[in-house]
Amino acid sequence: MRRRVIFRGKVLPYLLLAPQIAVTLVFFFWPAGQAIRQSVLREDPFGLRSEFVGLENFREVLADPLYLNAVWNTAVFSAAVAALALGAALFLAVLADKQIRGAGAYKTLLIWPYAVAPAVAAVLWLFLFHPSIGLVGRALNAAGIAWDYKLNGAQAMALVILASAWKQVSYNFIFFLAGLQSIPRSVLEAAAMDGARPAYRFWTVVFPLLSPTTFFLVVVNLTYAFFDTFGVIHALTGGGPGKATETLIYKVYVDGVQNLNLGGSAAQSVILMAIVIALTAVQFRHVERRVHY
């Protein structure tokens, strides 16, 4: 028998919803509204003089070759981070799911990096890969490979991808492990009895059954790569060398906070907001259909 809870009157349910709505209003709608207002103004840094310019900020941003460069960087960066973090996490989760001695210890260790703050993670990688003080960086140079991510754009990009992906592996690992453990043993045993080899079993049985988890993680990872990697990029390369590692979110920061071009920066935020809304909508409409639940 199902019990249904129905509120009497309308006051209580709205009251219970109020905190959530208030948080959304204050931390999302209000700043988003400010960004939209700011994006059609041109203002001096001190806020003493402002001028309504309509869509000029948007036109300028979209005509800026450096903005297109940031779009390209973001595409490369996000795709690589998501692929790397998901691939590594799935691999580790499959291994950790096996019956091995000390599995608990491995699992705990693999979850640790998630607790590391982005800036701290960046500093750890800096100590590994800095060309003159880093362990690996010095070894590479000693081995005759000219490693200097402060001058070589491709190397800088590889490094920020590596550091950002590393941080996200733990998160993905937890979800993949939980996903693997929820696959009924009987299904796998049946497949094994039918003569499917481990690799074949993985691709035909395990992977499709993991797809809800994978789908969820793809969304989370792309959002992570878009928005939460600021700290890593800031601490490792500062968007450089040149503009080689400047992503969209980093450019918003550079133009708005460092260069005090509030109008241009706000216009970029609005574009970014539109991109994310579109991306999420596309993902839920199209990708979700092909997912087995």
Binding site: L151, N152, P241, G242, K243, Q258, N259, L260, N261
Partner: peptide, 21 residues
């Protein structure tokens, strides 16, 4: 005005020269 940004621009362009671009 905006000299912080200009400094960064010069540094970026110098970096691209040092990279050989």
């Amino acid at each position: 005005g905006g000299f912080v940004e200009i400094r960064n621009i010069i540094q970026e362009e110098m970096e691209r020269a040092f990279q050989g671009q």
